[in-house]
């Protein structure tokens, strides 16, 4: 079933076209990778889908325009994980993860329900944060903090997960952790993932479909192997990407 459909999405900052008429779609169970060189407009596409920046064109979730969803309703369907987090106050890990349940709160004086508590505890367990649950987020490392916000999204329990370079500043251990966690999460029925990635190997390893972007435009969309073929990448990056990647890998053979 079609989960997300993006049609002619454009974003302008002043007179500058950051994103030009981008269209693609995501089916249930897919992991869509958005790839491309720096400044191609990858993150902006994601922000536009999440309604964080003004855009023209349409985004449909399950056939309904996302602009017609109420904020909480949309958050129950789509979760977004940003690449950076800076928290100024000493909230506990559990409190930040608990905010993921905001989409399910209702009424004026409503507190937390047992379902909320369970979802939070599960998310903490899934991301291995149980031991840190009562620790202040100000005292965490960058990797731990990213896991906290991943746990928040798991608690939020959306159908579609949008990730903006989720492992950008993280070392390999965390990178593997995060991608495995998301891969596990995606395997549940009626779920899908969109992520912006820099690392093309990661895109190939985890993606089922991909969009390749170059200077604001989607130059290719389809199964990941087709989109990230040598011709497309050469055109977008202006270099022989495949040869470079392979020469890098060769270094490991002698170790």
């Amino acid at each position: 079933m079609r989960m997300l459909e993006v049609k002619d999405l454009s974003v302008r900052y002043g007179t500058l076209d950051i994103v030009k008429n981008v269209s693609f779609s995501v089916e249930e169970g897919e992991w869509l990778m958005i790839a491309g060189p720096n400044g191609a407009g990858k993150s902006t596409v994601v922000s536009a889908i999440a309604q964080s920046v003004a855009s023209t064109g349409d985004v449909f979730f399950c056939g309904k325009n996302v602009r017609q969803y109420r904020s909480q309703e949309l958050a129950r369907h789509i979760g977004v994980l940003e690449q950076n987090h800076a928290v100024n106050y000493a909230f506990s890990v559990r409190e930040v993860v608990g905010l993921g349940r905001y989409a399910y709160s209702s009424g004026i004086f409503a507190g937390k329900s047992d379902a909320d508590d369970d979802a939070v505890e599960q998310a903490l367990a899934l991301t291995g944060l149980e031991a840190l649950a009562d620790k202040s987020v100000l005292k965490l490392s960058g990797g731990e903090l990213q896991r906290v916000f991943l746990a928040q999204i798991f608690a939020q329990d959306p159908d579609l997960l949008i990730l903006d370079e989720p492992t950008n500043h993280l070392d390999l251990v965390y990178q593997k952790q995060v991608f495995s966690l998301i891969e596990e999460w995606r395997k549940e029925p009626s779920r899908a993932v969109i992520s912006v990635v820099h690392d093309l190997s990661l895109a190939l390893a985890y993606g089922s479909t991909a969009v390749l972007m170059d200077r604001g435009e989607a130059v290719a969309f389809g199964p990941v192997q087709e989109v990230l073929n040598a011709d497309h990448l050469d055109a977008a990056y202006g270099m022989d990407v495949k040869a470079w990647m392979q020469s890098l890998l060769k270094q490991w053979e002698n170790i």
């Binding site: 964080s52 940003e82 909230f91 905010l99």
Partner: peptide
């Protein structure tokens, strides 16, 4: 006082607040 949950979300970050469903 009633907006305490929304304020918590803002205190963590406005973008994050938007993503978890706060009508920013």
């Amino acid at each position: 006082l009633r907006l305490h949950r929304e304020l918590n979300a803002f205190a963590v970050g406005e973008e994050n607040a938007r993503h978890i469903g706060v009508n920013v």
